[in-house]
Design a binder for these strands. Structure first.
Lengths: 199, 199
DNA sequence: TTACATTTGCTAACACTGTTAGGTTATTTA
DNA sequence: TAAATAACCTAACAGTGTTAGCAAATGTAA
């Protein structure tokens, strides 16, 4: 009885050791630097031992993804319970979501699969700058037309792109969980609101 | 003269051949299945020839990212020029953006780095379902409070998440191109509009 | 205490990956 | 015809995830 207990405990310890070591690697050099061999080296076990605890490398990364959702949920609850008014609750939860993503960047990236190949887009990519200009121009025009000298076009551009990109990212990652028609409705809804805000 | 011309032409042909073959692979098995060796095999050249045309594997993928931006820009222009009214232009551009992303999924993924590890989130991930419920509840409450039986909570949840996720994705990928303060403003702006729409 | 069974852990290999050094062959220029 | 250059290949380096098969330690039962 006690013997099997201890064994299970020791096995769990090794498992935690794997996760902990893996996380240190992800934090230090990013998720792409994670390697089964390096983990095995660090925990001073041979490689196949890792496979006694995890089916494959992806399963380890999935662990962090799940952990991320757990942390996020906790933060969301905490934020919600600060208020009674539902509008305030939503605002508070949005803040919590935002803070979580920024403070747990690695978690968030693994949760939603952000930043794989073709990173470093930001620097000197004329294609992106061109796109930005194209989208901004009509916004500027609309603002001018409505005598809205106060609006920050750069900000509006970001809002616009965020709505678009966010919706699409979610559709791609969580494929077919919700149908395209609904997503289109969300888009129309969001963009209508966007334009209204600019008028 | 003509000789160097032909050489340049032939070199360009090989380059195009590499890109074309690589793209076929990406379309067939996804970007993760892309392999320098497989490309070399397909174009019937040895591996180092690839490196005469591209610095590394990422450079090939970057080519598709750039191509994606070119296609998107063209679509955006096309959509814009259908209208004179800027509000209509924005709406049209949003539609074009949407269509582009759905019709050029591989391009879009490479452009913004979506869907790396930890895919297949959709299926049976209680953590995500839990999160969805948590976020939806106050929305439902707010709608009820304002006697808005018409609003689709599922839709609102998606809009909410899209704004959040989109903003954050962009911040992560295009790191430090725009400062955090601006992004926070965008968030507040978007969420305020969101709540207003729900009242 | 001995014999068997089970768990645990390892070595070594398979089949890949991106990348590059160095040499060979063919083509072009002087 | 000889030197220079470009084109191209072989073979290797240093990794990667994953697994088959074996050895040793540990537990259980006779």
């Amino acid at each position: 009885m006690g013997i099997t207990d201890r064994r299970l405990r020791q096995k769990e310890e090794v498992r935690q050791n794997i996760i902990c070591t893996a996380w240190q690697m992800v934090m230090k050099d990013g998720w792409h630097a994670l390697s089964i061999r390096k983990i095995a080296d660090a925990i001073e076990y041979s490689v196949p031992v890792i496979y006694d605890h995890f089916e494959n490398k992806e399963a380890i990364l999935l662990e962090f993804s799940k952990e991320g959702f757990r942390i996020l949920s906790a933060k969301i609850i905490e934020a919600r319970d600060k208020f009674q008014d539902p509008a305030e609750q939503i605002r508070s939860m949005a803040d919590a979501y935002w803070d979580f993503a920024l403070n747990n960047l690695e978690h968030y990236q693994l949760m939603f699969g952000i930043g794989m190949a073709c990173c470093e887009i930001s620097k000197s990519m004329p294609e992106q700058e061109n796109f930005r200009r194209l989208v901004s121009e009509p916004m500027e025009e609309l603002a001018k037309k409505n005598q809205r000298g106060d609006v920050n076009i750069c900000l509006k551009y970001h809002t616009f792109w965020s709505v678009m990109h966010g919706l699409i990212s979610i559709k791609i990652v969580g494929n077919s969980a919700y149908d395209t028609e609904l997503n289109k409705l969300v888009l129309d809804d969001a963009i209508s609101g966007f334009i209204k805000n600019l008028s």
